[in-house]
Design a protein around this nucleic acid. Structure first.
Lengths: 209, 209
DNA sequence: AAAATCAGCGAACAGCTGTTTACTGAGTGG
DNA sequence: CCACTCAGTAAACAGCTGTTCGCTGATTTT
């Protein structure tokens, strides 16, 4: 796909990725707002000054983490959108995809949920931009559905926003349930998420009555 | 109501409140996870060691802030619940009450939205407990409504959860809109929130079909 | 009036923080 | 092959952090 990088650039990107991974790990028990530059470099085993070769700030690193985390989520969303079948099967498939995503990328999900309203403005805004982008994408897909004839663009975006917000909340709830250690907690969260989507779907069906 | 406190205890509570207020102010631009004890005492104009006379931690202070913030919200919720009239008027009134609450206690709203998924476990859990309590209260009120005959307790709690989550998200969105400086942004958020509640209400009406 | 309490003080502690500096030495391109 | 680039180093900087200590003096209790 892309041109093979030189040994120099390859090593640089490797260190950069190590910094991102270490930061993501450290953020399990704190917020980005309190993440120290030295803390990250120490975890990687690199000199503090090396940090500046990759990021100017921990906030800057946070923005890079947003790209990474929401990049992976983007693919999950696209997969959920193209699902076909009756509304019940679509709901089941969407929730299953979210649950699988949480299992595959728990740290990413935690990061997004935590920093969406977090104390670091640039990161908060980066997440906001991307989630709005997702909502537009979902709205476009909803608009292509025959069930959406008569819907205004504004209402489609409103509905898409409900879906995107619900996805983020559900992902975070699944993560918490998994961390709580209580067996069956995740299943309960998933079941509730499905019922909530059913509720929204019912509202959608009668929107134009 | 309560017995009049001595001069000693009155002064102590005054200092305690000053610490809480200062902390809430400092949390506008950061997360609790990065809030320093010295930072708070400096803002109040008190010696660092004095902090320990009131809280053992900044996490401990955070839990106290949760009580304060969700105590005020509780009253707003109760006011929204007892509203009478058609569903359209009830929606308008609920959203107006939220908007008024955000205007009256912006820092409290920011704190709850930020720390709900924040990096300090005890605070996160305190918020979770209280929001679940709110949901139970809303569920009980919904159960008393004639429109809820045939609903299971589980489904009522699910619906109440949707309302509570939506309230928190809306409050946070109104806050952001106000901070963005864009005139009309808040009105747009409020209008979207109303449409979302209308969608949920439609779903509710057809739940048993 | 004497004794006890206790909120807040000021100083000191070791340990951490972000940032700058001049440097090394492996990888690169002419 | 040689000059150059540049990712990562080691050391030093001032300034901050949480926590402990003994102390003071106004309030409370006896």
């Amino acid at each position: 796909m892309s041109h093979t990088l030189g040994i120099r650039q390859a090593q640089k990107q490797k260190t950069r990725q190590a910094l991102l991974d270490a930061a993501l790990g450290l953020l399990e028990h704190q917020s980005l707002s309190s993440l120290g530059l030295r803390e990250v470099t120490r975890a990687v085993g690199v000199a503090p000054a090396a940090f500046y070769r990759h990021f100017k700030d921990t906030a800057d690193l946070g923005v890079a983490l947003v790209e990474e985390a929401l990049g992976s989520l983007h693919e999950t969303i696209r997969a959920a959108i193209v699902t076909t079948g009756g509304s019940e099967e679509r709901i089941d498939r969407a929730v299953s995809l979210i649950a699988a995503h949480v299992r595959a990328h728990p740290a990413h999900v935690r990061f997004i949920a935590r920093e969406r309203h977090g104390g670091v403005a640039p990161v908060r805004e980066a997440i906001g931009v991307q989630l709005r982008r997702f909502a537009e994408e979902v709205a476009a897909a909803l608009g292509a559905d025959p069930e959406s004839v008569g819907w205004s663009a504004e209402d489609l975006l409103m509905l898409a926003g409900v879906y995107v917000d619900h996805m983020v909340m559900t992902a975070s709830a699944i993560l918490e349930a998994g961390a709580s250690g209580a067996s069956g907690a995740e299943e309960a969260v998933v079941a509730t998420a499905r019922r909530q989507l059913r509720l929204v779907t019912l509202g959608r069906r009668h929107w134009l009555d």
